[in-house]
Amino acid sequence: MDSSNTSWEGGFILMGFSDWPLLEHVLFIFISIFYFLTIFGNSTIITVSRMDHRLQTPMYFFLNNLSFLDLCYTTSTVPQLLVNISGTDKTISYAGCMTQFLTVLLLGGTECVLLVVMAFDRYAAVCHPLLYTSIMHPVLCQALAISSWMGGLVISVTQTVLIMTIPLCGRDLNHFFCDMLVLLKLACEDTGAIEDNLFVAGIIMLACPVALILGTYAHIGHAVLKIKSMAGRRKALGTCGSHLVVVFLFYGSAMYTYLQPVQGFSESEGKFVALFYTIVTPMLNPLIYTLRNKDVKGALWKVFGRGTDTG
């Protein structure tokens, strides 16, 4: 157990991209730009949705939650990364590491559940349009949003407690944040039982939601085929298509990373995949939801004073 005391007392060293010192300068510039765009894009979605009464619907209520999640998710890792890249101090305390680990899992787990909720919202809108407002009652929407956060909280606390029970040997984390798989690689003892537990958690939080979403969209696709109006089909496919793109971006990278054995995890490759789901995906989400959405684009023009209120 003595070998693990270093982690408790001195914390960890986040190696980040120090293996590629020349790349760090380029990454600092691009990550800073992406982070700014993420903050701007998601803040704009939240602001516009609150200012335009036409966007105060269940779909945009959940989109607001997603944008807030993306803001928090990116902020939980990127500022630390930028500090590490730009300076020589790459340390993080044990408490700070566990807090970051808990936060990343909380936000990631919440998004897993929220994307399922958003699929249900699209199912209600497309398959039961006449009952949509009564089904997606504000009370139910709030309950579903709270349930998403509670689901993320349960999974994050459980996994954090498990990680904290493992004695760790060494301080060097070959990553830019305190990630589950990298922490497990520092374990001083066999982690087979814990890895099995984490794999089951991954199935519950990743594979099961994907199956539910795909099943939901199978019903939505069947309902869309029954719509005779081409305009109606385009409108249904527009909002549903945006959600599906977000689902594939988020779950694809997460499943690629976490549904694999710890020993088979490549830390170098994992860092670049992590850049995608912690920085690129949150930046793209506002674009995905606005480029093909006339309501949001109209609200943007209105807010920035280039349109008229058609009320």
Rank of each mutant, 00 (worst) to 15 (best):
F250S: 00
L102K: 15
I163M: 15
M59H: 11
D295N: 04
H175Y: 12
D196H: 09
L63H: 07
L168Q: 08
T47Q: 06
V246T: 13
L168I: 05
M205E: 07
S134D: 14
K90L: 11
A274R: 12
L287M: 13
S7H: 05
L237H: 01
T239M: 01
K302M: 04
P286N: 02
T308Y: 08
I163P: 01
S229K: 02
G232H: 07
T44C: 14
A231N: 11
T57C: 04
L198C: 09
K90P: 05
K228N: 12
R234S: 01
W20Y: 13
G202D: 09
V113R: 11
N197Y: 14
Y289H: 04
F276Y: 12
G311S: 06
E195I: 05
F120P: 03
M15A: 14
F265S: 03
K294G: 04
Q260E: 09
A254C: 15
G298Y: 04
I227A: 00
L114M: 15
L130D: 11
N285M: 12
G16Y: 05
L275N: 06
I213Q: 09
P21N: 11
N84Q: 13
R54C: 10
R171M: 02
I203N: 01
A299M: 05
F199L: 15
A236Y: 03
V117D: 13
C169P: 00
P261S: 12
L173T: 01
D2S: 03
S4A: 11
V117Q: 15
G232M: 06
A211P: 02
I29N: 08
M15R: 13
S43P: 02
I85D: 03
F61N: 07
Y60M: 10
L130S: 08
N65S: 14
V83F: 12
D2M: 02
S268E: 07
S268H: 04
L22R: 11
R233T: 07
P138I: 05
L198M: 14
G96N: 09
V48T: 10
V26C: 07
L168E: 01
V83N: 12
I146V: 15
L183M: 07
V273H: 06
V157M: 13
G241V: 03
F17C: 01
L115H: 11
P79Y: 08
I146N: 10
V113K: 10
V113E: 10
H53C: 12
T91F: 08
S147Y: 15
H219A: 10
T77D: 02
L69G: 10
T257E: 06
V116P: 05
L82W: 09
T44R: 13
L183V: 02
A207L: 15
T6Y: 00
T133F: 13
T110A: 09
I39P: 03
S134C: 12
A95Y: 14
F28M: 02
I213P: 05
F176E: 01
L284I: 06
I31N: 01
C127I: 09
M98A: 14
V280H: 01
W149P: 00
V273C: 09
I203D: 02
G192N: 09
G41S: 07
T47M: 12
T216E: 06
N65Q: 15
S43D: 05
G298E: 10
I204L: 15
L153E: 05
I46Y: 10
L107K: 13
G215C: 08
I227D: 00
G305E: 02
L214Q: 04
T74F: 14
T91E: 04
L115K: 10
K90T: 15
F62D: 08
D190I: 06
